[in-house]
């Protein structure tokens, strides 16, 4: 009889492990519920294969299930049997309703934050010498043109930022300019939001296309001022 108890304990233990233990192992992350279901299905089919290799183990495994379903000699468990027989169709109906009902949620949107730049904007190096004067000039241009949205503190919290989605980039965040090359910033500043490829959702970005207003030299200086002001360094290839 233990041959049915053990598999169930194993399944529950597997679920508890996947849901509550695995996410806390360093370097791990919570599993999506679809993956948990998949792992449980694999565990379940493994158990079924294992339990049905011999005639004896197969009988020991299926016997109790058959007796429960047919209701033979169940005694006090008869009520539970009816409960299960009622609960199962309701569960199927509920799941069907959940998967066919029209969603009230707007379409999900995914936006690539740093999409690939066009070929001509990869690997360019800043032609402006990195002198204190140039950095200071860059910060001056930044204050005039960029800070209304990207913020005087380079944190993306400028006074004009509040209504914009996507929010203006926070340059102090290590996942923005610190992981990009100067060449990439040059492209993004020059072409602005409308220059993004489709995966970057260009129709939503308020970033101006600065090439129509600022000379390239100013843009290179702004890049310098941004890195200096945000205490970040451009990504390099070494």
């Amino acid at each position: 009889m233990g041959s049915l108890g053990k598999p169930i304990i194993l399944m529950v233990a597997m679920y508890v492990f996947l849901k509550f233990v695995l996410p806390y192992i360093p370097g791990s992350a919570p599993l999506p519920s679809s993956l948990i279901v998949l792992y449980l299905l694999l565990t379940g089919s493994g158990i079924v294969i294992f339990e049905t290799v011999s005639k004896e183990s197969k009988d020991a495994f299926w016997g109790p299930i058959q007796r429960f379903l047919t209701g033979e000699a169940l005694g006090g468990l008869q009520a539970l049997r009816y409960g299960v027989l009622i609960f199962f169709p309701l569960l199927v109906g509920w799941q069907t309703y959940g998967s066919t009902a029209v969603s009230d949620l707007p379409p999900m949107e995914s936006r690539t934050i740093h999409p690939a730049p066009p070929g001509e904007y990869t690997g360019l190096s800043n032609p402006v010498p990195k002198t204190p004067d140039n950095i200071m000039q860059g910060k001056g241009f930044y204050a005039a043109y960029c800070s209304p949205c990207h913020g005087g503190n380079f944190d993306g919290k400028g006074p004009a930022a509040r209504g914009f989605i996507p929010a203006p980039a926070n340059f102090a965040d290590p996942t923005t300019i610190a992981m990009l090359q100067e060449s990439y910033l040059f492209w993004r500043i020059k072409k602005g939001g409308v220059g993004l490829p489709i995966e970057g959702a260009p129709w939503k970005s308020a970033m101006p296309r600065w090439e129509v207003e600022l000379p390239d030299e100013w843009i290179w200086k702004i890049i310098m001022g941004e890195y200096d002001g945000a205490h970040q360094s451009p990504r390099t290839w070494e």
């Binding site: 108890g5 399944m11 679920y15």
Partner: peptide
């Protein structure tokens, strides 16, 4: 174990796992 007792076990764990999912 008597069959009844085992069935109880089955149901308890099974229901718990289903509810959690």
């Amino acid at each position: 174990k008597p069959a009844n007792q085992m069935m109880k076990q089955v149901l308890r764990y099974g229901t718990a796992a289903t509810m959690a999912m």
